[in-house]
């Protein structure tokens, strides 16, 4: 399974940009083609197998979002890019662990959540709230909202994925789901606490 070379970089990038039904196939190939090289590097540099997989998955996420935003220019190969991102993520995690060990946090209002434990906790709580609310809107609504907002599928693709007759139905469903998500989110007391609205 690992080391599968069935897809070229170009095919993977096009597959992600096109999105839709086929996308997961390209993500899987991308994952399998890069897994060993990246995880081996992290494991050889003081990481456990779990560290290596977490970091690799974060690097794949960074790559995916860059491609979706049209920011991956292809100056380097996908493998080189993911390897470099994973290397940086791992170095920053190692530094963070070292700091945690010596209790030398520097609190700075401009510092990012990544380096600030309080902001990281806030982010985690936001994540938990969002997932809890999303689970309450129902499985199909959750899918529609994620497809539309995160995966940026067109209404036509959403209709095909969800088995709706046309994109207008998908559009109406998305509107209703978003409305329901908004109602539930705003009504949740934790939302007021975390977002301060």
């Amino acid at each position: 399974m690992p080391g599968d070379k069935a897809f070229t970089d170009e095919a993977i990038i096009t597959g992600i940009l096109n999105g839709g039904m086929e996308e997961s196939k390209y993500i899987k190939a991308l994952y399998l083609q890069n897994l060993d090289r990246v995880t081996r590097h992290i494991e050889l540099n003081k990481g456990t197998r779990e560290d290596a997989i977490d970091i690799f998955q974060e690097a794949v996420l960074v790559f995916y979002e860059k491609v979706k935003k049209g920011e991956f220019r292809g100056d380097s190969s996908i493998a080189t890019f993911i390897y470099a991102v994973a290397q940086n993520l791992w170095l920053s995690k190692l530094k963070k662990r070292k700091r945690a060990l010596h209790h030398t946090y520097v609190v700075d209002s401009n510092i990012q959540a990544e380096n600030n434990p309080e902001l990281a906790v806030l982010d985690q709580e936001k994540g938990r709230l969002i997932m809890a609310v999303l689970n309450r809107v129902g499985a199909s609504c959750k899918k529609i909202l994620l497809y539309a907002v995160y995966y940026q599928y067109s209404m036509q693709e959403i209709a095909a994925k969800m088995g709706y007759k046309n994109e207008q139905i998908a559009k109406n469903k998305k509107y209703k789901c978003k409305k329901r998500f908004k109602q539930l989110l705003l009504a949740d007391p934790v939302y007021q606490e975390l977002y301060g609205d």
Partner: peptide
């Protein structure tokens, strides 16, 4: 806030899919 929330959820969903692989 809603858009950001859904993007965060999307990231979590994406990572879940990678975990399945």
């Amino acid at each position: 806030n809603i858009q950001d929330a859904l993007k965060t959820a999307g990231k979590m969903d994406f990572i879940q899919n990678l975990k399945a692989i």
